[in-house]
C-alpha cells in the first residue's frame, strides 16, 4: 500500500477557457492533515473538488493529467463516481446539513448506498451513535436525534456534516474552509475534532486562516494562480519558506 492517499501528475483543469489548475503534481500523505493555503481564486477549492470529481457537477470542466486516489487513477473508465465519493467525502464552508432529522443526516450516506431493505434499524442506531460519538456530538444530541438538523447551532451542524461522512468509512475527508462560518470557540472545537481524526482518515483542508494551518496540519501546500508554489512540512513552510512568493504571502503582503 502506498503511503500517499492522493497523487496528482501534471493535473491541468479548465473551466471553459479559463485554466484554473496548471501542472499540479502533488502527493498527499496518508493519515495526516494537509492544509492548502493561498489567496482567493488560486485554485485551492478547485483542486479539492477534483479529488472526488465533484467539480464536474459545476459546469463545463476539462481536465488533463492524472489523479490517483489510494493508488487508483480516478479518471479510469471503470471508476464509479458514487463509489469514489463514498471514499472521498467533503465538508463545506457553510455547514450544510440536509433538512431532515439528525438521525437521517447521519445515515443518509448509507441509505444512498444500500438497497431499501438492507439497512436494519438496530444496525443504523449503532452507526448513528458511533458516528456522533466520533465527532463528540453524542452527548449533546442523543436526545435530539429526531430534531431537524438545520435547527442546530452552527458548530453542531458542521460536526454533523463530518459525522455524516463517517458511516461510509471514507479514506479521505476534504474540508473546504470548514471553520470560516464559525466563531472562535466553535473553530477550536472543530479543529480539535479534526486532530482527533488523524490517523484514521487523510484530511485535506483548505483554509484562509494561516494560524489554523499551523495549528492543525502536518504538511502544507501553498498555491498561487493555479500552481503549487511550495509543499513541505507545515513547520518548515512557515519558518523557512523556500519560495519567495510563499514568504511574501505568509508575511501578509498579499492575500
Amino acid at each position: 500500500m502506498s503511503t500517499y492517499s492522493i497523487q496528482t501528475e501534471r493535473l491541468n483543469l479548465w473551466y471553459g477557457d479559463f485554466q484554473a489548475l496548471i501542472n499540479v503534481s502533488v502527493d498527499v500523505v496518508d493519515g495526516i492533515i494537509t492544509s492548502l493555503i493561498g489567496p482567493s481564486g488560486c485554485g485551492k477549492t478547485t483542486l479539492l473538488r477534483s479529488f472526488n470529481r465533484v467539480n464536474e457537477r459545476y459546469g463545463n470542466v476539462t481536465t488533463t493529467g492524472e489523479i490517483k486516489v489510494l493508488g487508483k487513477n480516478i479518471y479510469d473508465p471503470d471508476v464509479s463516481l458514487p463509489e469514489l465519493r463514498k471514499s472521498v467525502g467533503m465538508v463545506f464552508q457553510r455547514p450544510n446539513p440536509l433538512p431532515i432529522s439528525v438521525y437521517e443526516n447521519v445515515v443518509f450516506g448509507l441509505r444512498v448506498h444500500s438497497s431499501r431493505t438492507s439497512l436494519k434499524k438496530s444496525e443504523s442506531d449503532e452507526i448513528v451513535e458511533k458516528s456522533l460519538r466520533e465527532v463528540f456530538l453524542w452527548d449533546d444530541l442523543k436526545d435530539k436525534l429526531k430534531v431537524r438538523a438545520t435547527t442546530l447551532q452552527l458548530e453542531q451542524q458542521q460536526k454533523l456534516c463530518i459525522a455524516r461522512l463517517l458511516p461510509l468509512k471514507p479514506q479521505v475527508i476534504l474540508m473546504d474552509e470548514p471553520c470560516s462560518a464559525l466563531d472562535a470557540e466553535a473553530t477550536r472545537a472543530v479543529e480539535e475534532l479534526m486532530v482527533s481524526l488523524v490517523g484514521r482518515y487523510t484530511i485535506l483542508i483548505v483554509t484562509h486562516n494561516m494560524a489554523q494551518a499551523r495549528r492543525v496540519s502536518k504538511e502544507c501546500i501553498f498555491m498561487l494562480l493555479g500552481e503549487i508554489m511550495e509543499h513541505s512540512r507545515t513547520k518548515d513552510l512557515f519558518i523557512t519558506p523556500q519560495n519567495p512568493k510563499t514568504a511574501e504571502y505568509i508575511e501578509g503582503r498579499y492575500g
Binding site: 457537477r57 465519493r85 463545506f92 444512498v112
Partner: peptide
C-alpha cells in the same frame, strides 16, 4: 448546498432529487 451535500456522499442525481 443541499444538493452539494448529497453529491459528496455519492448520491446520484435521482437520489438527490427524490430524497
Amino acid at each position: 448546498a443541499f444538493r452539494e451535500a448529497c453529491w459528496n456522499v455519492g448520491a446520484t442525481r435521482w437520489q438527490t432529487i427524490r430524497r
